[in-house]
Design a protein around this nucleic acid. Structure first.
Lengths: 221, 221, 221, 221
DNA sequence: CATGAATGAGCATTCATTCAT
DNA sequence: TATGAATGAATGCTCATTCAT
């Protein structure tokens, strides 16, 4: 039985590979409708649900139903719930990585402006569950390999930010300090956008992004 | 109705406990060993577990087992899982409120020093799951009353912080700005302490607290 | 411990003992409120609930709550659910017996008129669950003694009817036939009053009683 | 939704069955022994149990056990207890309808003889619980759709009888009267067969049927 | 590739019952 | 008398997982 389980996402953090909602249709015959390869649809649906509701609250039948396939199909494509979760979260992180990279790599823009743009994009889509909370809940069910695969993918995101903070320090654009702490401070502050109270603080996500960036840049002192 | 279901954790903060080794009991009321009020022990255990693992991942049998009682006993004291969750989370928030209040109300200390002390205390005990994530997961199961009860308890904590930020602004101790945003920024930054990566940033929680306060006070600019 | 459990209602069918909603208050001091002796209140409440909902569907806590006492109190007065059920059903049957007796014993009225009056009274109060269905559900939980106690009490009701049918046959008021079958036919026809469809057959209970008596008296032929 | 939940018992009346001795199975689809469609077996078993014991007294594990499957299998085939109950009762009513129809539609036989045959058939198999009692108990758990589905199926049975009574009135075979009341009177009288006391009234079911038909036809007057 | 049918383990909840006070 | 606090057993239901087809 040729089971295509990528039982562990192997070289996880290969970033910058382009998003996947292609709807690319073969010129010849679109027979199989245009449904994007089932595996990808499952992955995408799973990403959304896991981010929205956490690990336990999402059932495989729920995912299957939303994709119009059966639970057994999900099992054909993924080894089990932990494996699917792992793949889904990593997919999400890679997408976020790619998006962040694109913005941060823009030339001729100050770091502050670029960070503001990243903030605006993230706050625009409700990002739901805090990553650390998600991992704490799920980690019971994941094996070591899966845990590190996810951790690595997430680390890369913070590494990316840290690199840019490091460069900004080098050219004197920001003050001296630990670039990794800056990266975590930045993403921690963005979490405010998930809070219900955020709505009472500022009207639009864009406005909130501006205020948060202000806090991040100048502090309270 | 002579049932003690009341989801208000009454006089919380009972210190000096010591876990009991589980020992099967026969039905009927046991001969009142040393064991302190069971209800409180359940509440305390539930608080810890819910904070560590989220809503769904915690089972009532798990809680009961840890307390050395049966599931049915838990149901005697609490109306159900949602009610227990509500009581447990509120207990936690009230404890946090009381502790924070005690520190912030100290006279003759600068706001910055007092905030640092709060930060040190919070980072000392792993505080586990981010509040917003917890609520998002649980809110499906809670009724409106329960949701608002929790939200209110949490709001009080931020209100407390905001009041002190407001006062500090009034006396020129910190810059102008939205006190509530400051409060949320402060607690958001403290969440870094929950992250695994925090360990690679700084050796001790106290050190981390200092670094975070630095970020909070002066920003990166 | 002087436990007053009449674990089996002994001489069950002692009929004609007068109903019990006395509200009799001692002239001296009404201290204990006027609540009729708790045991009786439990019994009365249980009767109603068992008749309305059957055996399993009624919980002892439900009964206790309605009486404003605790479950444990119910256990003080009755040995357990089966015993309470037995007592409650027998009480009901005795009441029905007494009422039926009073009507049937009227002098100078034709049997038909007296039966009509019985029918009207029974159809007036929704009589709820069919007796045989109730017994079938409950009999799993009752011991032999309880079962026969109930059966006997019910038998007495049919005996009473049969006696009157026998007398009517003797004096030529009705045709020859098996009086006991007549009794069962009569009560079986009254069951139509419990059916939802009864409402579409006739407007008032009194009208239905008349139509049923007509069927009973003349048949369809 | 590829799940076969549909609470309509499709082509009922599958004859020739033979109970299977329970034998634990390993997960996955078993190798299609002789065993006839499981869904039907569940339905049949459920019908019997519900009729015998009522709604609450029957547990899904009980049903599963008798069918040699697990509770989870029952849930695969039926949405839940209410749905299974609905399907089972409707199945029963449809069977009864078909049987009754077959007898009543015979040509060249007097109504009385045909009704007698129906009575004999029904009294032959213990029919257990009175329908109205069953519904009263269960209706708490059923939704509106389920309730009306059952009510409709039952109504059809009485409609069938009423039609024949109507025709008999038209040709002067029986006296004038409300055909629907006649139908209900007829089925109410048949309920005597369920009573324990029935045994003391007549030796055989056939004899009882005859006596009841006599009552129904000529009344007591 | 895909699925229909099944399982076993676990969970929230309810209930009758018990007993020290 | 009455009750507060506890238990054990059962129930309805869900879910991840398996496997023959």
């Amino acid at each position: 039985m040729p089971h295509p389980h990528d039982s562990a996402p192997g070289g996880a953090g290969r970033p910058g590979d382009g998003r996947q909602e292609p709807k690319r249709r073969s010129p010849g015959r679109p027979r199989r409708e245009d449904r994007m390869p089932v595996r990808d649809e499952i992955l995408k649906t799973a990403s959304v649900l896991f981010m929205e509701q956490g690990y336990e609250a999402v059932s495989l039948s729920g995912i299957a139903e939303r994709c119009g396939v059966t639970k057994a199909s999900v099992y054909y494509h993924f080894e089990g719930k932990p494996a699917l979760f792992t793949a889904a979260v990593i997919r999400m992180l890679q997408l976020a990585f790619a998006g962040t990279l694109r913005v941060l790599d823009q030339q001729g823009k100050s770091l502050r402006l670029r960070l503001l743009e990243v903030a605006e994009r993230r706050l625009a889509r409700i990002q739901h569950i805090e990553f650390e909370a998600l991992m704490r809940e799920a980690s019971h069910y994941l094996d070591e390999e899966q845990r590190t695969a996810i951790r690595d993918a997430e680390q890369e995101l913070h590494d990316l930010l840290a690199v840019h903070f490091g460069q900004a320090i080098a050219v004197g654009e920001i003050r001296q300090g630990n670039p990794m702490l800056m990266a975590h401070s930045y993403t921690a502050l963005l979490m405010i956008g998930n809070r219900q109270a955020a709505k009472s603080i500022s009207a639009s996500p864009a406005d909130l992004a501006a205020q948060i960036m202000d806090m991040f840049w100048t502090g309270v002192g």
